[in-house]
Amino acid sequence: GATAVSEWTEYKTADGKTYYYNNRTEESTWEKPQELK
């Protein structure tokens, strides 16, 4: 299949934890999204 550009962006909180934000759905998660595995 075609490689889609991930909708997920990786961010870090002030205390250094990583989370992921989906630009399309406006969803955020602590877990690494399936698309990034």
Rank of each mutant, 00 (worst) to 15 (best):
L36Q: 05
Y11Q: 10
G16I: 00
T9P: 00
T3L: 12
K12A: 07
A14V: 10
A14S: 11
E7I: 08
V5S: 12
G16V: 00
Y20K: 00
L36Y: 13
S6F: 07
Q34A: 15
W8D: 00
S28N: 07
Y11S: 05
G16S: 01
W30A: 08
Y20V: 00
Y21T: 05
Q34V: 12
Q34W: 13
W8V: 02
G1H: 14
E7P: 07
N23V: 10
K17G: 05
W8H: 00
G1Q: 14
S28A: 11
S28T: 15
Q34D: 15
W8A: 01
T13H: 04
V5Y: 12
A4T: 13
E31L: 08
D15S: 09
A2S: 14
A14Q: 11
T13L: 05
E31T: 10
R24G: 07
Y20L: 00
L36F: 12
N22R: 00
T25Y: 02
D15M: 04
E10K: 03
Y20E: 02
Y20S: 00
L36N: 07
A2E: 14
E35N: 09
N23E: 14
E31F: 08
K12D: 03
E31G: 04
E35I: 06
E10R: 01
S28Y: 15
R24N: 12
T25H: 02
Y11P: 00
T25Q: 02
K12T: 14
G16P: 00
R24T: 13
W30R: 04
T29H: 06
T3A: 13
E27I: 07
A2T: 12
Y21G: 03
N22Y: 01
K12P: 03
N23Q: 11
E35S: 11
E10M: 08
A4G: 10
A14M: 09
K37F: 15
T25M: 02
N22M: 00
N23S: 14
D15G: 07
K37N: 15
G1I: 13
W30S: 09
N23A: 11
T9H: 10
E35L: 04
K12Q: 12
R24L: 15
V5G: 12
P33Q: 02
T9D: 06
E10F: 03
E35V: 07
E31Y: 09
D15P: 00
T3R: 00
V5F: 12
S6Q: 11
T25D: 02
E35T: 06
T13V: 02
L36D: 08
